[in-house]
Design a protein around this nucleic acid. Structure first.
Lengths: 226, 226
DNA sequence: CGGCTGATTGAATCAGATCAACTGCTGTGG
DNA sequence: CCACAGCAGTTGATCTGATTCAATCAGCCG
């Protein structure tokens, strides 16, 4: 059982390069958490006592409005960790988290982790780098939301996927409705944006398969700040 | 001169509680930077070699679109530090920064600071807390932008100011046009939003003086997710 | 074969951006 | 001391991208 935890923790990017001894001490305080697609892990405003790492499956972090609209902040897959913020502030979760698929997670309590950080400056630097990259991502997301229209945001998203998957034949990593929520819009508008890009000959879509026909054009569109 | 730097660094929140010796070693590598209102400190995309702390004056951090619209991400005043992100990633500044008033800043080079962090776990924890609180703020900003309309965002902003200033008679900390840019809109729309809140009897505005007449109502509006 | 969920399409509506004009204030120069 | 340039802010008229509401369609699982 502890062997499993050790293996699971070793697969988390944040803990790469951590000496075996420290990994063990993490394994002592970490807990496995299994959940099914659709399960809510925590909600915005709840006191944040643990942070999480994804061993397998996919989790979305989002904020919801009273009227039901949701804005996805990020989606995390195997090897990634999330909900670090309350660890360092000892306050509430700033957003909600829900499993998109059946997941195996490890949860790590705030307190023990902070102690480990005190002893391991390299891990601390890793955490700072992680938080920084997340800040950078949010800056980009804020700029997209306020400076660009939906087709432009979609173009940017597709280019990101293309870069991640390394070819022009992309598989959408999320259902379209979820992508809409990530782009700050709704499925109907997203659908029309796809149509628009298709009509302009920039992409070709069939189901969750997208072929990028004109990367240049896409990126031109994505940059175009209104 | 080094006395000055020491005093300046001592006034930065992030460095509170840092032992005198470490503060000295910071002072050795820190540089004063003076700038006039309107000066650009750095632009999004430039390689980020230093981060900054505000001794006096005010700085805005923002992203601009090609067409000229700007989205303010944050405004920093005396005692606050900014542009930490590239320190831990060694990449570019994710946004631009410009002095809103005449400023005295200290700039601290990436390299020396990282070394100090290795030796000072408490400082490292302080940095992580700072980055976390900034993440929390961005999460809120993203949610506001995508989930709420302009009058609601304005209501939220005013409540924030009210809390910060501790009374119902608020002084706007920025020119209205800048507030518009922070709220992700333009001066015209901002002006109409003010009018709307006034007509609803929630606030009373004259110049940069705002009186909050109905905090309850304001907060009801601010929460209302569309 | 239903029945569900996700996706698409169409029509109507709306919030916010845009464009243009005007106000009022401040500071500068004749 | 007054005139006027210049900028921030306001107001009105119009336009447009996005949401809303409603209906339909496609795929998938029981």
């Amino acid at each position: 059982m502890d062997k499993d935890k050790l293996a699971a923790l070793g697969g988390i990017k944040l803990f790469e390069g951590l000496p075996q001894a420290q990994l063990k001490s993490l394994a002592d305080i970490a807990l496995f958490k299994r959940c099914k697609a659709g399960d809510t892990l925590f909600e915005a405003g709840q006191p944040g006592t643990h942070f999480f790492a994804v061993v397998s499956g996919k989790v979305r972090v989002y904020r919801a409005s009273l009227s039901g609209k949701e804005q996805i902040l990020s989606v995390f897959g195997a090897g990634e960790s999330f909900a670090e913020v309350p660890v360092f502030e000892g306050k509430t979760y700033p957003a909600s988290a829900q499993a998109l698929e059946d997941c195996l997670l490890v949860s790590i309590p705030r307190k023990g982790f902070v102690e480990l950080l005190r002893r391991e400056p390299e891990l601390a630097l890793g955490v700072m780098a992680l938080l920084s990259s997340r800040l950078r991502a949010f800056v980009g997301q804020i700029a997209q939301l306020s400076l660009k229209e939906v087709p432009e945001r979609l173009a940017g998203y597709l280019l990101l996927l293309r870069a991640a998957q390394g070819r022009d034949e992309i598989t959408l990593d999320l259902p379209k409705g979820q992508i809409a929520s990530y782009l700050g819009t709704i499925p109907e508008t997203m659908s029309r944006a796809i149509k628009k890009l298709s009509e302009q000959g920039l992409i070709e879509v069939s189901g969750s398969q997208v072929r990028v026909l004109d990367p240049e054009g896409l990126s031109l569109l994505a940059e175009s700040g209104r």
